[in-house]
Design a binder for these strands. Sequence first.
DNA 1: GAAAAGGTACTCGGATATCCCGTGTCCGAGTCACGAGGG
DNA 2: CCCTCGTGACTCGGACACGGGATATCCGAGTACCTTTTC
Lengths: 133, 133
Amino acid sequence: MKYSKATNYALHTMLFLAAAAPNKPVGVQQLAERQAVSPTYLSKILTKLVKAGMIESASGANGGYRLRRNWEQISFLDIIHAIEGTASLFDCSLDHGPECLVQRVVLEAEAKMEAHLRGQTLAQLVSEQKIDH
Amino acid sequence: MKYSKATNYALHTMLFLAAAAPNKPVGVQQLAERQAVSPTYLSKILTKLVKAGMIESASGANGGYRLRRNWEQISFLDIIHAIEGTASLFDCSLDHGPECLVQRVVLEAEAKMEAHLRGQTLAQLVSEQKIDH
DNA sequence: GAAAAGGTACTCGGATATCCCGTGTCCGAGTCACGAGGG
DNA sequence: CCCTCGTGACTCGGACACGGGATATCCGAGTACCTTTTC
């Protein structure tokens, strides 16, 4: 029961992009160095974020990754779901009646966690980060 | 990001033991049949619960597994921790200042989930289950 | 005193958990090489 | 033409999900042996 490292990279990258200059694209090279990971691997992760519509990529010279218009409303949960998928973290798969008590309780707990993650938007966090810094 | 099947088995077993007659030990054979898993494998999982002090085992004829005295206060979180370990589901492991914002947010979310799981005791759930049934 | 009843202690077999080990599968993490696209 | 992203194929290791067999442990039934009772 752990979030994957890919999720970690994605979250940090998004936060970095949000804190950086908003319109200049940032190359994967630079992003990868910052997190000590290979550029190829990171680009694979970022492609998922592109497909999820959170960032956009530009090829060619001076290309890179850049946030899209409405980036401020993106939440942690959105990013996590883009990487990990939206499958819930428990499915009973035993056939003992349609209402599995175990399932219900765990899913309630999960919902509480997701609610918190949904409440944390990039915009909020960037301002907090600036204060810290 | 998923709970292991072992956790599933453990939760169901605990709930079953709590619903059954409290003092008669139940053999691993019977418990395993109910969940369609091999007795050998299940016993491995139950051993963890024994070591965590939640149930006790009895060898010999009419032996089996049985809840301990204060079973009513055992929570879902206790059971999950006994099987999955207590490691938190995120550790940033990047060295960018002592206070990682990502880490903080995810851990807050995790705490909310754990709070909910800690609030669900076996005693509560057994009574709910009886009503359902 | 002998037979029946009772009781203790010991053995023994089977039911049970526990330990050690092995196997197959799947997934995360990462690399490499090559293709595509744009300035 | 060069720089950048995109992606598919590949490797590699470790965790997960099981299962099997041998071993230790313990209970309960049987049994033999002794003691007590009763006539």
